[in-house]
Write a protein that binds this DNA or RNA. Structure first.
Lengths: 260, 260
DNA sequence: ATTTTCGATGTGTGATCACAAATCAAACAT
DNA sequence: ATGTTTGATTTGTGATCACACATCGAAAAT
């Protein structure tokens, strides 16, 4: 043996994740944060350029996003973020109510971590503050953190993954409503209130009440989104089906990932 | 215009799907049919070789399967079919009971197609016959057809997709139990009976009963699988695996069901 | 006999190139 | 002014190559 394991305890392990993985996580986060608009066309080469890599890793990452239905092919040679389609979105909401309702019920009945309640309260407080301050990015992130904190307490890791891919599809749509500040603020006000109900239900291990609170939360935000889209579709754009031959996407191209 | 569309009405439209898509569908079907064992290592080049293409399309297809958790990386440079992990599998069963139970309930309450019942009865009959004849491939396919025929009647296409990716994960595990003929035959016998209950429930639009039947079906097959795996892990017998993937699949086939 | 070493082989990853098809804009013809 | 065509550009797809690392087998050293 040449040399023993050097014990320079000053340096730790190095990030050895693959480029493809980092690209995937970046795009995923961007989708969740609403940096892409529903229906926005994307290009592998374009993304590679912005991210500072070759098209290859982006290609793999996009393939995964396609499998998760977050990205779809709008034609033989074009990709776009999944557009808003009323019927489809409504279906996803129904599914989410079932799945996330089940997760909440299970969390309320089986949770163990004694710090859970305090953590939920803290997160909910931060949502309220961020919303009041007009910091919708933080409020959105906080909302996501709250829900997943609850679902994690259900003790079914695979459920977390499934729900998270569902959020990946509803994410851009929810985020697109951020254009309407007033609506967004009221959405969070209601949300915080419902979250409090959920916390209380979990505290007293009332599974049915927890399920009711979370499903109500999902339904409420869905109604808001629907109202927003309906109002917005008066002029700018309406979601179009996955049929080909659609030109789509107004010039209102939102920022699609800035720096490298 | 150079030339009109030639009207040789003898030839129809040509399959213009991409190679990647066909590879994906092939692998997916193979997974569902049980041509891969849980935990079996696979190689991109090997699959490409077998399928007669370059590694490129396989790479994209596998990326999608990874996103669906049907394939996972077992190391920095190696891939394998998702192995059987008891806790994980149990979680998937719970999720499936929720989702497929919901789909069944909704199908029973909202179905419209007047031919639905007859189609279900026909499929169930074919399962029974195939099982009696020892043709488990057909019986397995029939079972899948039955379930998805029901879920399709729920009128929520996105739900179908989600459930189908869940089957993609439980598929190889279910199929691996085919080594035990006796168990498999009894499994189908019980299944056919439960399916009849489900049909009856749907016929009289009894949502709760339909949900009960389907969840029972899932739970029953889960118990059988669990019993099989438990027995198989005690005595790693050399069952024949129709693994058509690449070379690989070392002698440790008996342990393919456990983990790693 | 057991352990170690080391080389051959195979792996996923990433980059680069080729290509047909789709898109867009300017120039055309009406 | 308007609808059509055409040509340059960009797209995803697929093939090929290079590379670092993992794996495994045989030879060597203990």
């Amino acid at each position: 043996m040449i040399v023993d394991a050097q014990k320079k305890s000053g340096l730790g392990p190095v990030d050895l994740t693959t480029v493809q993985e980092r690209v995937y996580q970046t795009l995923r986060l961007g989708l969740l944060k609403g940096e892409f608009l529903p229906g926005e066309t994307i290009s592998i080469r374009g993304l590679a350029d912005v991210l500072g890599t070759s098209p290859m890793p982006v290609r793999d990452a996009v393939a995964r996003l396609i499998a998760e239905r977050a990205v779809e092919q709008s034609g033989p040679r074009s990709l776009r973020v999944a557009p808003y389609v009323a019927a489809e979105h409504e279906a996803y909401i129904r599914i989410r109510m079932q799945l996330e309702g089940y997760a909440s019920e299970r969390a309320a009945l089986t949770w163990k971590d004694p710090d859970l309640l305090e953590r939920l309260r803290e997160i909910n407080r931060s949502i309220s503050e961020a919303s009041d301050a007009g910091d919708f990015d933080s409020a959105l992130a906080g909302n996501q953190a709250f829900h997943f904190e609850v679902y994690a307490a259900a003790g079914l890791p695979p459920l977390l993954e499934i729900v998270s891919t569902l959020w990946l599809r509803t994410g851009p749509i929810l985020a697109s409503a951020r254009q309407d500040d007033a609506l967004f603020e009221r959405l969070f006000q209601i949300g915080v209130q419902i979250h409090d109900d959920a916390i209380e239900a979990i505290a007293r291990r009332d599974g049915a009440a927890a399920r009711r609170a979370i499903t109500l939360d999902i339904r409420a935000s869905h109604f808001s989104i629907r109202r927003f889209v309906k109002r917005a579709s008066g002029e700018p754009n309406a979601g179009q089906g996955s049929s080909r031959g659609a030109k789509s996407v107004p010039a209102s191209r939102g920022r699609a990932l800035e720096q490298a």
